[in-house]
Amino acid sequence: NTCEECGKPIGCDCKDLSYKDRHWHEACFHCSQCRNSLVDKPFAAKEDQLLCTDCYSNEY
Rank of each mutant, 00 (worst) to 15 (best):
N1G: 02
N1T: 05
N1A: 01
N1H: 05
N1E: 04
N1F: 10
N1V: 13
N1Y: 09
N1W: 05
T2I: 15
T2C: 15
T2L: 09
T2V: 04
T2G: 03
T2Y: 01
C3R: 00
C3L: 00
C3A: 00
C3M: 01
C3D: 01
C3W: 00
E4A: 13
E4N: 08
E4P: 03
E5C: 10
E5Y: 14
E5G: 14
C6E: 00
C6R: 00
C6M: 00
C6W: 00
C6P: 03
C6S: 01
G7A: 15
G7V: 07
G7R: 06
G7H: 04
G7D: 03
G7N: 02
G7L: 14
K8H: 11
K8I: 12
K8L: 09
K8F: 10
K8S: 04
K8D: 05
K8Y: 04
K8A: 08
P9R: 03
P9K: 04
P9F: 01
P9Q: 06
I10K: 02
I10L: 05
I10T: 04
I10A: 02
I10D: 00
I10G: 00
I10E: 02
I10V: 07
I10W: 00
G11N: 05
G11V: 02
G11M: 04
C12I: 15
C12T: 12
C12V: 12
C12H: 15
C12W: 07
C12L: 08
C12N: 05
C12Q: 13
D13C: 09
D13R: 04
D13I: 05
D13Q: 09
D13M: 06
D13L: 04
C14M: 15
C14R: 08
C14Q: 09
C14T: 14
K15W: 00
K15E: 04
K15V: 04
K15G: 06
D16W: 05
D16A: 05
D16T: 08
D16F: 06
D16H: 02
D16Y: 04
D16I: 09
D16K: 11
L17H: 05
L17T: 12
L17W: 13
L17S: 10
L17N: 06
L17M: 15
L17K: 14
L17Y: 07
S18Q: 11
S18V: 09
S18G: 06
S18P: 07
Y19W: 05
Y19S: 06
Y19A: 05
Y19G: 02
Y19E: 07
Y19P: 01
Y19H: 08
Y19N: 08
Y19Q: 07
K20N: 12
K20D: 12
K20Q: 14
K20P: 00
K20A: 10
K20M: 05
K20W: 02
K20V: 06
K20L: 06
K20Y: 04
K20R: 09
D21H: 00
D21F: 02
D21P: 00
D21W: 00
D21T: 05
D21N: 06
D21G: 10
D21R: 03
R22W: 09
R22D: 04
R22A: 13
R22F: 08
R22T: 06
R22V: 04
R22Y: 08
R22P: 02
H23E: 03
H23K: 07
H23F: 06
H23P: 00
W24L: 03
W24E: 06
W24Q: 04
W24N: 06
W24F: 07
W24G: 05
W24D: 04
W24Y: 14
H25R: 00
H25Q: 00
E26K: 13
E26H: 05
E26Q: 06
E26V: 07
E26R: 06
A27N: 15
A27S: 11
A27F: 13
A27G: 12
C28W: 00
C28P: 04
C28F: 00
C28H: 04
F29C: 05
F29D: 02
F29G: 06
F29L: 05
F29M: 06
F29I: 05
H30P: 03
H30I: 09
H30W: 11
H30K: 13
H30R: 11
H30V: 12
H30A: 12
H30F: 13
H30E: 09
C31T: 01
C31Y: 01
C31A: 03
C31P: 01
C31K: 03
C31Q: 00
C31W: 00
C31F: 02
C31I: 02
C31H: 00
S32Y: 07
S32L: 07
S32G: 11
S32M: 06
Q33S: 10
Q33D: 14
Q33M: 08
Q33Y: 04
Q33E: 13
C34H: 00
C34M: 00
C34W: 00
R35Y: 07
R35P: 11
R35I: 08
R35V: 08
R35G: 13
R35T: 07
N36F: 08
N36G: 12
N36I: 11
N36H: 13
N36T: 12
N36P: 01
N36Y: 06
S37H: 08
S37M: 08
S37G: 12
S37Q: 11
S37A: 11
S37D: 07
S37P: 08
L38Q: 01
L38A: 03
L38Y: 00
L38D: 01
L38P: 02
L38E: 03
L38K: 03
L38I: 15
V39S: 11
V39T: 11
V39F: 08
V39K: 15
V39C: 07
D40Q: 13
D40M: 06
D40V: 05
D40F: 03
D40R: 07
D40C: 07
D40I: 04
D40Y: 04
D40T: 09
K41N: 09
K41V: 10
K41C: 14
K41Q: 13
K41W: 03
K41Y: 03
K41H: 12
K41G: 08
P42V: 07
P42R: 14
P42H: 15
P42E: 15
P42F: 06
P42W: 11
P42T: 14
P42L: 05
P42D: 15
F43Y: 15
F43S: 12
F43M: 14
F43V: 15
F43E: 12
F43N: 10
F43A: 10
A44T: 15
A44N: 10
A44P: 06
A44M: 13
A44L: 05
A45Q: 13
A45M: 13
A45D: 09
A45S: 09
A45F: 10
A45K: 11
K46N: 14
K46A: 10
K46C: 07
K46S: 11
K46Q: 14
E47W: 03
E47L: 10
E47C: 10
D48Y: 07
D48N: 12
D48Q: 10
D48G: 10
D48W: 10
D48S: 13
Q49E: 11
Q49F: 08
Q49A: 10
Q49I: 10
Q49N: 12
Q49D: 09
L50E: 03
L50T: 08
L50F: 01
L50W: 07
L50I: 03
L50P: 12
L50H: 02
L51F: 15
L51C: 13
L51T: 07
L51R: 11
L51H: 11
L51I: 03
L51W: 06
L51M: 14
C52D: 02
C52P: 05
C52V: 02
C52L: 02
T53Q: 14
T53D: 09
T53F: 03
T53E: 14
T53R: 12
T53S: 11
D54W: 05
D54Q: 10
D54A: 08
D54T: 08
D54I: 14
D54M: 08
D54V: 07
D54F: 04
D54H: 08
D54P: 10
D54S: 10
C55L: 02
C55Y: 02
C55H: 05
C55Q: 03
C55V: 03
C55F: 01
C55M: 01
Y56K: 15
Y56T: 14
Y56G: 15
S57K: 11
S57F: 00
S57A: 11
S57C: 06
S57P: 15
S57H: 06
N58P: 15
N58A: 15
N58Q: 12
N58L: 09
N58E: 14
N58D: 14
N58H: 06
E59G: 14
E59F: 07
E59Y: 00
E59H: 11
E59M: 09
E59T: 10
Y60C: 15
Y60M: 02
Y60V: 08
Y60D: 15
Y60N: 14
Y60R: 12
Y60I: 10
